[in-house]
Design a protein around this nucleic acid. Structure first.
Lengths: 125, 125
DNA sequence: CAGAATCCTTTAAGATACTG
DNA sequence: CAGTATCTTAAAGGATTCTG
């Protein structure tokens, strides 16, 4: 019974248990790459699958694919297919996704501040 | 080579790679219970171990223990032992931890908004 | 190009029992 | 009370191969 946070929240909501507001948000961008994906789509605009693969370096094919799928299920990004050959697919933020951006920006700022702090304290070189 | 986000960030920082600001923040509160812990400590004040166990219901002994330990390592909560018998131990937010609270509050607000939205759309009962 | 499918490893988290 | 230790399960993520 080791449910994922995402599943657990989905079940809770279906059962009318709404006391999980912060977990709900966390459940959307927890996952090793989701904030990074959202950040790039939100700040730099639409990206193609292979662009992101090159950009994120180290992310595996399957993992990228999965994370994109879940973000789509959660309604924060969307997928548009252009009828070309070779196929072109672009991922971009939805309106809902953009409402999440301020949070990610705060996370960015906090991380930046904290890294500076650690440097000043000599805890990292 | 399936490192945890936390470890990966720690290694990056040690190597002078500072391009991981948002992941740095995420790495601190990703984990099924960490935002919940931080929320309660931040909004309601210090808590004892068993208080939290009762409060969070469903969290296992060991998991609570681990998450607290990591949050302490990350410097966002602190632990105070009172020399009594039976022992009393209180966990509370550090100054650094409080700087994280606005982010968690935004997560709370977003989740609340989103749940309302889903209700209005009839996607959840 | 953009992926789905399969197989495999690592890690997070739960259950349970034990200790000062 | 406040943990630690051990064991087990489940899920996330990686590697690789295949396809329209």
């Amino acid at each position: 019974m080791c449910n994922t946070l995402r599943e657990e929240i989905q079940v809770k909501l279906q059962n009318g248990d709404y006391h999980c507001e912060k977990e709900m948000t966390l459940s959307i961008f927890s996952g090793k790459w989701k904030v990074v994906i959202l950040w790039h789509l939100g700040v730099e605009g639409p990206h193609r699958f292979n662009d992101m693969q090159r950009l994120f370096k180290n992310i595996s094919h399957k993992t990228l694919s999965n994370q994109l799928k879940e973000l789509m299920e959660d309604g924060v990004i969307s997928r548009k297919v252009y009828p070309e050959s070779p196929p072109r697919v672009e991922y971009s933020m939805t309106e809902l996704g953009y409402t999440l951006l301020p949070i990610i920006e705060m996370m960015y700022d906090w991380g930046k501040m904290r890294i500076e702090q650690l440097k000043n304290e000599g805890l990292i070189s």
